[in-house]
């Protein structure tokens, strides 16, 4: 049985608020995610799930409150190789002329820094990441030649290539068939359990999040629930979610 090591805080949010206009999209969110946690973030559409993720990654800056990564305020944070990010697949142009290897190599850039170019050990690390997601034999293929599920694995490989301690995923299985989804979540589970990788998964699929994650966060502007998935399912949130059409069950 996997045990969660609570000794190290990966990310800490305190009273975080954010708004695009005058109304808060995310309001007074406080939360700590620890090493080895597998966190599922669910909530109704428009409830601020993606915004919340972007705040944790520094893509958006909070209007008030603080975000700390590995104990460092996000505005001062430099150690980006500790973070892997898997964006929604649709945000990346699938017709982009890159091979799988070139794409995964981008995951090394945060370690390389400016004016440094990939060397042999970077290529080896890319190969290793591709093997971890069982996509090594596709490394010379163009990314557009892959199926949605294969592309998703390549995205994970890119995140793994920076040798991160935590991976953040934004709706990773949108547009992927059920069988491929199942394999995808098996992969995530093994990364979490075998490598002790911290995972933060934003999804509209409550059933998957509740089944896979060790911690569940329900965000609807505020973080209305954070804790064990089992407890969450007993509460009223579940019905509220279905009522608002925020999940697929």
């Amino acid at each position: 049985m996997h045990t969660v090591d609570h000794s190290q805080t990966i990310i800490e949010l305190k009273d975080v608020c954010f708004s695009y206009t005058s109304e808060d999209v995310v309001k007074n969110v406080s939360l700590q995610i620890h090493k080895g946690d597998y966190v599922g973030i669910v909530g109704p559409n428009g409830g601020g799930k993606s915004t919340f993720l972007k705040l944790m990654l520094g893509i958006l800056r909070p209007a008030s409150g603080t975000v700390k990564l590995f104990g460092v305020d996000i505005s001062q944070f430099k150690d980006w190789s500790k973070i892997g990010y898997v964006p929604q697949r649709t945000t990346v142009d699938a017709n982009f002329p890159v091979t799988v290897e070139e794409f995964v190599m981008m995951g090394r850039y945060s370690r390389l820094g400016l004016f440094h170019f990939p060397k042999q050990d970077d290529r080896e690390r890319v190969n290793k990441s591709l093997r971890q997601v069982e996509m090594y034999e596709y490394k010379n293929r163009q990314i557009s030649e892959l199926s949605g599920g294969q592309q998703q694995r390549v995205f994970i490989a890119r995140a793994l290539a920076s040798e991160p301690e935590a991976i953040f995923l934004d709706e990773p299985t949108v547009g992927v068939d059920v069988k491929t989804q199942k394999q995808f979540y098996e992969l995530l589970r093994s990364l979490n359990q075998k490598l002790d990788l911290t995972l933060v998964l934003v999804t509209h699929e409550l059933d998957i999040a509740a089944h896979e994650a060790t911690e569940l966060g329900y965000i609807n502007r505020t973080l209305e629930y954070y804790g064990e998935p089992k407890e969450f399912l007993k509460g009223d949130y579940f019905h509220e979610l279905i009522g608002k059409g925020g999940i697929r069950h």
Partner: peptide, 12 residues
């Protein structure tokens, strides 16, 4: 060019 958000998260 390929993925501006991910590039940002990579500290670029």
């Amino acid at each position: 060019t390929i993925d501006e958000e991910a590039a940002r998260v990579a500290g670029i």
